[in-house]
Amino acid sequence: MTGIITATAVVAAVGLFIGIFLGLAAIQFRVEVDPKEELVLEALPGNNCGGCGFAGCSGLAAAIAKGEARVSACPVGGAEVAGKIAEIMGVESEEMNRMTAFVMCKGTCDKTASDYVYTGVEDCKMVSFVPGGGAKSCNYGCHGYGNCVRACSFDAIHIVDGVALVDKEACTACGRCVEACPKHLIELVPYTAKHLVACSSKDKGPVVMKACQTGCIGCQICKKNCPSDAIEITDFLAKIDYDKCTGCGICEEKCPKKAIV
């Protein structure tokens, strides 16, 4: 019995001693860390995903505290975290435009034509090298073999009906899918952008007509009808200027091919 008591007492004493010793050491050897850095670190999500390009959240916190990184540098935290950090740093939250990835193609299986049946390696990069740039008649469209899906760390992009589709809520605009797409179909657009051209085909109208039921043929109808002059047509492809767009929706309504979403 005494053995148990001695053992408990000694281990407890050792533990207590270590605790007090470490506590004192922590005070004694305290290194002055920028208090802002600690606060910023607390505000960050803390997943250490590295999406910002720094070595984990603490790396980003140090950079923000030193003023080397923007307060909105965390792609995961979004506007909320950026606002908190801006408050800590005492700067006006720079216009925090939440961005989201957008796939500029809506040529789903039922809308597009195929030149042949492809049964090879299911990888977008590979498909880009097969004759005709893949089985899809449109040489600009989404292959739907999911390189972007594999690149996404946030489960925010999926292949639906043979075309990649971004889940706007889950997307953190990290840009990995943008890099992964060999067709350069994905771009980062403002989260608030109401109308987007879901086509990247630079082919002339008749070619697009044959390949896809919902491709932009460069007909200029949207441009002519846009009240705020926000649409430009280059290479037979409409492009919306998100700064000028007021979101009236006339373009979407008038587009004969329903290429604007």
Binding site: T6, V10, V11, V14, G15, F21, L22, A25, A26, F29
Partner: peptide, 25 residues
């Protein structure tokens, strides 16, 4: 104290604390 049978537990405790301390130092 004749409690050498507790060596494993005490050593773990001490080593963990030591590493903490060394890091601070």
């Amino acid at each position: 104290f004749d409690i050498t049978f507790l060596q494993t537990i005490v050593f773990i405790l001490v080593i963990a604390a030591l590493v903490q301390f060394v890091e601070m130092f």
